[in-house]
């Protein structure tokens, strides 16, 4: 087990793990985008900024309120989700009758505002966020050392995606949501408060982004730009997967993370662009995306 395809095994597994972690973030973020898109018909360009706000919320809770990682995991999504609810109520709501492109432009503008404010307050360099004591250290798996926190991120993200899938596919609330995605007017005629559902869906999608941000805080340094570059990759992931299916987004997210990790091993120069290249190929072969409809 020293070498695989002429590559030292620790390097290979190390990059695979990094790929899985990136994939976990791709999956959680593209899942949030897909849920929001399904009901609101807008692409939430603020998603990257909201991911960043999640990480900052964790940092602020620790520094200013003394609340640690586990509290942050619970509170940050609620806080950031609440800002999402306010944004939807005050601004995004006004655009539903317009061309969907305006939603994209509006959320892009909101993202710029948020990123700019955080850059003013905290500068561009990163702030450190320590791994919680319970998750420090690493396991010896025999073929590699697995830092416990990294394993935790992958498992927690899988769990969060699974929970989202269960809520949407198996609960009454999820049934309303799916119905409203198909035909909002009809669902409203049955007495469901669709506008409120839209608001809460947006809040939930934003909360999911913030949750990913909290998970990311101890891995990447917490900085205002951490979301903006990630979100463009996530857009590519969404185009590749198509936004039709929840499990599709999750699979595509993790899969592309792994592909990216492997590219780092075999052809490091291409690792930044490989997802975009895959996107181009998928578009040529299957314009609707791997799991897309129509």
């Amino acid at each position: 087990m020293d070498e695989i395809f002429g590559i030292p095994a620790p390097l290979l597994f190390g990059q695979l793990l990094l790929g899985l972690i990136n994939g976990a973030f791709y999956a959680m973020l593209s899942l949030g985008l897909a849920v929001i898109f399904g009901l609101l018909n807008i692409i939430n360009f603020t998603h990257g900024a909201q991911f960043m706000m999640g990480a900052f919320a964790a940092w602020m809770l620790l520094e200013w309120a003394g609340l640690g990682y586990w509290w942050a995991l619970l509170l940050a999504p609620i806080i950031v989700g609440a800002t999402g609810v306010i944004t939807e109520r005050l601004m995004i709501r006004r655009l539903y009758k317009l061309d969907h492109l305006y939603g994209l432009l509006l959320t892009f503008g909101i993202g710029l505002i948020i990123e700019g404010i955080f850059r003013n307050e905290f500068g561009s360099s990163g702030l450190p966020y320590r791994i919680p004591p319970q998750l420090q250290g690493s396991w010896d798996l025999g073929f590699m050392f697995l830092p416990i926190y990294r394993g935790w991120v992958v498992i927690f993200a899988l769990f969060a995606c699974l929970a989202t899938w269960l809520v949407i596919e198996k609960t009454r609330l999820g049934a309303y949501l799916r119905a409203a995605t198909e035909n909002a007017t009809l669902v409203q005629a049955f007495g469901v408060n669709v506008p409120r559902m839209i608001t809460l869906t947006y809040g939930a999608g934003v909360g999911l982004a913030a949750l990913a941000g909290v998970l990311a805080a101890p891995i990447y340094s917490v900085n205002p730009q951490m979301g903006s570059n990630l979100i463009i990759v996530v857009f590519a992931v969404v185009v590749i997967g198509g936004m039709g299916s929840i499990l599709g987004s999750v699979l595509t997210g993790f899969g592309l993370g792994i592909v990216e990790g492997l590219t780092k091993v075999f052809w490091p120069e291409a690792s930044a662009t490989v997802i975009f290249v895959i996107m181009a190929i998928v578009l040529l072969a299957r314009p609707a995306g791997l799991f897309g409809r129509g």
Binding site: M91, Y102, F108, G109, L112, I113, I114, G116, I117, N120
Partner: peptide, 21 residues
């Protein structure tokens, strides 16, 4: 003004889309 330019640009985006299409 540094990063405030970004904030102002974002604000103009929002204002244009909401009220000034």
């Amino acid at each position: 003004m540094g990063a405030w330019v970004t904030v102002i640009q974002g604000g103009i985006f929002v204002a244009c889309v909401l009220a000034f299409r």
